[in-house]
């Protein structure tokens, strides 16, 4: 592909991104209530996907227990807004804080496991937290509890108004998580993370503080997941252990989204979430088969192009659509001669 076509494609990509963002900003005036609800769900899932990508794709913490923090956020929000009767708008950031506080002991447990075992270890922790949530009688025990109407009203007297408010909260959460994570990736820290993604051992050798970065990413993700949990609770208007801590919704789908879209890139989770919603809206009537298709697709991605759909597209593009490292565009394939390192010759 010629350089000019590549640059053109990049700008098309950026244009599409801005158009998408513009549609999201205008959505409350453009769409019906049911579509707004769907977009709210989209934004929550996007937030969770961006965070899983940061944790698994860059920091190499392959957790399958991230749904725990969504659940903690949901329960904390409910606790502050309904049980403690704090202003629900204040309860949302507080839910993020609680998720962050929980992340510290969780990290202390799962970081003791070697990488290969951390996945199931994080799942055990998430399962434990879910079962523990089911023992909280103030939260309805194992069957959960609905938000009282008085609290729901605060977000809008009419359903339409309420959906719009919740949509804006979801929008703010997604925007905050995308922009701040993008800034994180553009900082020096991001360079270190890219080094880990590309070659963990090499990154350690060149002096990247591996464990520091892993801790940072894990703690970074937790409050955003907590925020997503609060939004989801607002949308569902209830908390319940299997729904608030849903491994299918907040981990299984999210892993499929990130893997298919492209793990270890900033564009991947965005593309993946869009594709996921397309698949779900067109294939949901085929029931279990949409899971099977997603599973087969993600295995195929791992075998064929581990960097996902975005990795496939990226082969033909000179740079990222969302630039995170300020590097000159990659040069073309090095020639054999040029790639041959100058051998340092030992002297006696």
């Amino acid at each position: 592909m010629k350089a000019s076509t590549g640059a053109f494609a990049i700008w098309c990509g950026r244009l599409a991104l801005f158009a998408g963002a513009a549609v999201l900003v205008a959505a409350p005036w453009l769409f019906r209530v049911t579509d707004i609800a769907l977009l709210t769900e989209f934004l929550s899932l996007l937030t969770i996907a961006v965070m899983w990508n940061l944790v698994a794709g860059y920091a190499d913490i392959v957790s399958v227990g991230q749904h725990a923090f969504v659940g903690i956020g949901a329960y904390a929000f409910f606790g502050f807004a309904v049980i403690a009767r704090i202003d629900p708008f204040l309860a949302i950031p507080l839910a993020a804080l609680v998720a962050l506080l929980f992340a510290i002991p969780v990290m202390a447990i799962i970081f003791r496991l070697r990488a290969a075992y951390l996945a199931v270890g994080s799942w055990v922790v998430a399962e434990t937290l879910m079962l523990a949530a089911g023992k909280l009688s103030a939260f309805g025990g194992g069957s959960g509890i609905s938000m009282p109407v008085s609290v729901v009203r605060i977000f809008g007297a009419h359903p339409a108004e309420r959906y719009a408010t919740i949509y804006w909260i979801a929008f703010a959460v997604a925007a905050l998580s995308l922009v701040s994570t993008w800034l994180l990736m553009r900082s020096r820290i991001g360079l270190g993370l890219t080094a880990i993604r590309d070659d963990e051992q090499g990154a350690g050798v060149v002096g990247v503080n591996l464990s520091g970065l892993r801790i940072l990413c894990f703690l970074w993700a937790a409050p955003f997941l907590g925020l997503a949990g609060a939004v989801i609770t607002l949308q569902k208007l209830r908390v319940a252990p299997p729904a608030s801590f849903s491994i299918i919704d907040w981990t299984v789908y999210v892993i499929f989204i990130v893997v298919i879209g492209g793990i270890g890139s900033f564009e991947g989770p965005i593309i993946g979430t869009v594709i996921f919603f397309l698949i779900r809206s067109y294939l949901s009537e085929i029931g279990v088969w949409h899971f099977i298709i997603l599973g087969v697709l993600s295995i195929a991605v791992v075998l064929v192009e581990p960097r996902g759909l975005w990795g496939l597209v990226r082969r033909f593009l000179p740079e990222d659509v969302i630039p995170i490292t300020r590097r000159p565009p990659l040069p073309g394939r090095p020639t054999e001669q040029a790639s041959r390192p100058a051998e340092s010759i030992a002297h006696e």
Binding site: D60, V62, A116, A119, I263, S298, I299, L303
Partner: peptide, 9 residues
């Protein structure tokens, strides 16, 4: 670690 976890997942 990632590919084997994703495939078995």
């Amino acid at each position: 670690v990632l590919p084997i976890i994703l495939v078995t997942f």
